[in-house]
Every structure is written in structure tokens, then in C-alpha cells.
Nucleic acid binder design. Sequence first.
DNA 1: GTTCTGGATGTAAGCGCTTTCAGTAACCGC
DNA 2: GCGGTTACTGAAAGCGCTTACATCCAGAAC
Lengths: 355, 355
Amino acid sequence: MPLMRARTRSPIRRRRAGSNAIALSDVARAAGVSTASVSRALNTPELVSENVRAAVQAAVTRLGYIRHSAARALASRRSMTIGAVVPTIAYSIFSAGVEAIERRLEEAGYALLIATSDYSLERELRQVRILLERGVDGVILVGRYHRPELARMLQERAIPYVCQGAYEAEGPHPCVGFDNHAAMASMAEYLLGLGHRRIAMLAGISADNDRVIDRIAGARAPLNRAGLDFVPGGLVESRYDVAEARLAMKRLLALRPRPTALLCVNDVLALGALFEARAEGVAVPAELSITGFDDFDFARNVEPPITTLRVPAPEMGRGAAEQLLQRLMGQSPPQATLLPTTIIARGTTGPAPAG
Amino acid sequence: MPLMRARTRSPIRRRRAGSNAIALSDVARAAGVSTASVSRALNTPELVSENVRAAVQAAVTRLGYIRHSAARALASRRSMTIGAVVPTIAYSIFSAGVEAIERRLEEAGYALLIATSDYSLERELRQVRILLERGVDGVILVGRYHRPELARMLQERAIPYVCQGAYEAEGPHPCVGFDNHAAMASMAEYLLGLGHRRIAMLAGISADNDRVIDRIAGARAPLNRAGLDFVPGGLVESRYDVAEARLAMKRLLALRPRPTALLCVNDVLALGALFEARAEGVAVPAELSITGFDDFDFARNVEPPITTLRVPAPEMGRGAAEQLLQRLMGQSPPQATLLPTTIIARGTTGPAPAG
DNA sequence: GTTCTGGATGTAAGCGCTTTCAGTAACCGC
DNA sequence: GCGGTTACTGAAAGCGCTTACATCCAGAAC
């Protein structure tokens, strides 16, 4: 029989072990009010009198009180943090998006926990599990493809989420982004309009990556409509790295007859292609037109400046954060938001060479 | 007198309001053991019997239990998260560092909360406050300069921290990085060795930024030793952006007589300088040598490839994380760790033009 | 005066874990 | 057989907050 042990505890409560942090109860004592009032003064100041508010404010400043968000999270059942899983942040499209997300969330008092998937859906799923463990109130993902367990896990726990960087009107996931298929299709049409018929494509690694897959399909669509396809051997994948892109480009330049135009899945690849073409003495755009995607800083500054497509990275980040915040507040924003892209014609594209 | 109110609470405990999450007590019930045993089976499996471990493991999988880290943090007084404040992540040196930090922390079971300071020490301080509120167990910062209140706040709460990306043997802060002064000095010496005497510098914004200040001073030191200085009007600051760098470069190119060599604080600026020089018809390196800093991906791929200085970004990130983890485990790693840099001589530098 | 309001405040019950402490059982050496 | 380990296990006390509920007290309405 478990009987009440006579615990001889010192009546003086020991300062939080291992830390000399000030707790809310200290503030309450200092301000001469209850802990409830302190909590209210801090979180819902409109519910307390001017006196209490001022006393609490003064005590907080005097003691240097800092709230303990784990305790808040436990008691209020909201952690005020959002999790984001991106392929990598070492790639400016994503880091720009993440910065935009962070900024918007900060305004709303949320913190952002960032995890990277390394372009692996498996790893993405694991990272979401970890974020859930961390008690995030919402999740932001990249792209349309995700492990089915992922959405299930999120829905089971009623955690709102948004996918960013892709668009799917009828898709299963809420999203804020642009239509990768349509964007790349417009670029292919642009090349066709310039008279190009022998077209190749330098793509990213398509495994697990809907954006790449959509862009490849998008490029193909208008070609097929014109009774064409990529030149044989003219679809090559490469990691997003200038050196690797140059290697891939080597293979493309060895094709005979040579393509007269090259669609790249992004500007890093286009840059590598451009460098390699120049190194091989292939004139751009006289002999070969090259297009990029993303409109990176350097795209407009290299010689010749790269024809590319502007992608609304910060807008997507902000939009995704916005949509998530709305869901968190119980509203129902549109399931899918489509953002525009624009072709920016510059110096790496020109009419197809005669013959 | 507060008397015991007869609370008519339903004996059936309501499932966690607003969420149907499984709690540790559910696992305990399912496994037929106490919550203490479940906690031990999960955190210190070596302390429980094989039977308990297996039963708990089975229950966890069956129920899809996910730990509640806010509750863990509250009870254990450790949040298992680290905070990092970097100027921006939209700049590959920092994003590479952050990725390395994240990777190392993940191995150790820590999550990373990232905040950006936008190169403002004031904002850095605010961000650290927020991180503290979030209960981070440690903090990673960038650089040597910080608001004095920052270290005070951290020390008061006994939160370990490390500064990354700079090195200061006798400095007040623990750090892992390289010597910006020495690195840039070696670059200046390299130019002097090539016979350059009229040298200019394209720097970043030096306000609040010790790395830029150290690099400027580092460049100046060997010049002064040789009885020289930057050419008059030859020290210009620019944000890290190719377009702005080109604008700044315009002013440098207008100097008469023109400098024969230009030290850039990083590769983005060097790239802008190179583009602008080419646009103005200034031959690189025949008429003008240009050096970068950081060894970005594109530096070796442009034409001519940029002479630069390799900076150990991932190593610094990993090292900073490592050092922090050691402190967290009660060890005392060296206060300052110096990492090496290397000059990588490429095509943008050559002997000073005669006359 | 009495009864209602309703705003401001306090009380105390958790939130879901970890961890201390006590208890139990099995085992050891003598 | 006995004291002393050793190896597990469970009960329960918090961790520092939020919040449902009770209370109190003016002032309004009657």
C-alpha cells in the first residue's frame, strides 16, 4: 500500500535547478499580482487593468524576465513554431523563399524550424516526423510530390500545411506556386518561335522531383505538338552545380548534328552550359541558344546575359506563410494559389542558324 | 477560505483537447508498464529490461506515438535545440555553414532554429532574445562583433555559444574560424609580389561587420609595410550583389591613373567587378588584376576564372556545432579554433602592366 | 435597499513529460 | 539462512506556464 511519505521539503523553493532564470511566478510576486494576471498582461493585455499591466511591465523589465516557450507550448497546446522542409538552403531560390517565410512568420510571432530533405522524399518524411515531435503548429513543404504517409500524419494531427514552389489546381495538397509545366512550355514555344527545331534539354535530377519532371514534360509538350521531340540523346540530367553542368554539356555538344537550342532547368545549369559552350568555341547565341530558369542575380550579368524565366520566390514564400497563418487562425484560404512567371529574353537566345 | 469545490469531472479523461495525439501515458497503458519505464525505454534503453524495451517499442509503433518535445523540455530542462543567428542565408557561404551545422546537430539529436540578423548587431541581439525565449540550449553566432548585452544575457543563463567565421585568439568569445586579417593580407602580398603598386579595394558594407573591417585592415597592412596604401578613392563599399558591385566598380574604373589591381572582399563583388571591367573594355588580367574571396562555385568557371581564397565554410559550421556540443556535454574545448585558408591563383591575376 | 450585470482578478488544475526516491526481487558470498 | 548487493520498476512530484472557473466589487437597473 503506497502511503503518503512524509516529504521533508524545504519550504523555500529552490531556484530552478541548473539555471537561475526568472519565472513568471517571480514576476507575479514582484508585481504583487497573481500568475494568471501576469500571463494575461503579457498575452492578452486588453483583459487587464492599466495598473496591473504597468506593474507587470515594470517587473518584467526589472527582472529581465524571458518567457519559457516550452511551458507555454505545453499549457496552451500551441508551440508558435512552423516547420519547413526544403531540399537545400544552399540554393538561392530556396533560401530566398525561406527568408521570405521567416520574415512573414516573425511578424506573426511564429518561429521557423528549417529542415532539409536533400531532394529525397524519404528524408522529407523523416524530417516532418521530427518537426511534429518538435510540436510545430504548421508545416511548409516544397513541391507536389510527397510520401503519402506524410499528408496522413499531418491530417491525423490536424496540422495545417502548404506546399510551395509548384501549382496544381486539383491536387491533393494546398499550394502556393507557379505552373512549372506551363512555364517551361512557354520557354520551349519561345524557342520554336525563333525557328529552332533541334532542341536539347539540360535537366536536374528528376527522381523524386516534380518540378524537374513537370519542366521536362512542359518543354516536350509544344515540341510534340509541332511534331518534334528533343534531339536523340538530347535530354541529360545533372546536379545543380556549374562543374557538373559543364560535364553534362560536354555530352550535349558532342551530339551530331548539334542541337541549335538548349533548355536548361535552371540558371546554374544554364551558366555551366554557357561556360562550356564558350570553352568549346561554340558561339552563343549564333550557333546555340541557351535558356535558363529562375533569373538568378548573375544571369543578367554574364556575357552574354542569360535568357531566363523569372520565378516569384519571395512571393511564394510569403504567400505560403500567409496561407498557413490563415489556416492557423481557422480561416479557409484558397486551396491553390497561382503566381505568375515571366520570360526574360536576353542575350543567350537568337534565331536558329540557317541550314 | 478557499474550500475544496466539488468538481464534477468526467472520470473518462478527455483526449488531448484539439488534438488526438497519443501521449506517453497511452503507451504505458498499452505496454502494461509505468510511464517512468516508457520514458526510460525511450531515452535510456540500457536501464530497462529487454522485456520492457520490447513491449514499449511495440506499443510505440502500434500507436504511432510521437514524443512531445515541449513537455520533454519542460521536465528535463533541455530543449535539444540550438539557435543560430546568421546575417542572411541567401548567401552561399552562410547557407553552406548552416547546412553543415544542421547536419552535425542532427546527428546528435539537436534541432536548429535559424534566425537572420541582416548584418545588423541590433537585430542579432533581438534574435538571440527570441531564441532564448524559445529555450535553445546553445547559440551559434557569426563574427567577432556583438552587442555586449548579448554575451551577458547568454552567460547569465549559462547558455554556451560559439562564434563562427572569424578568429580571435585572445578574444572574449569562443570561436571557430579563420583569420580574416591574415587571409586578406596574404592576398595583398600576392598582388605586391606580382609587382602591383596601384591597388584598390572593393569591400562590403563595413558597418557592424568585423569580417569586412578585418579584411580591409588586412589588405592595408602589407601595403603600408611597403610604404603604400590604396590608391586615393580606391576603397569602395558595396552590398553583396552583382549589380551593385558593377556600379561601385564603375567608380573605381574612372580613377586616373587607374589601379592595376583590385582586391574584392568576396567573389560576388569580384564577379561584378570582372563583368564591369569587361563591359568597359578593360582587359583582365592584362590591364587589371582582380581577386575574390570565398571560392564560390562560379569563380572557377567564369572566363577568366577568378583568383580567390578558399574559405572553410562547411568545416567552420561543423566545427562550431562540434564545439557547442562538447560544451553542452560539460567538456571544455579550446576557446578558439583556427582553420586554414588557401589562395587559389587563377586567371584574373597577372603581373602588373609595365609603366 | 436589492438584484443584476460585467469587468478584473485570483485559484488551482492540468499540459505530457522526466526524474527522484523507494520498493521489490533476484542474486551473491559466507 | 542472512545481510548486502545489484538490477529493475513504479509512484508521484514537479517543470513553468495557460485557462476554466469562481470570486469580488462596482455600478446600473429597479
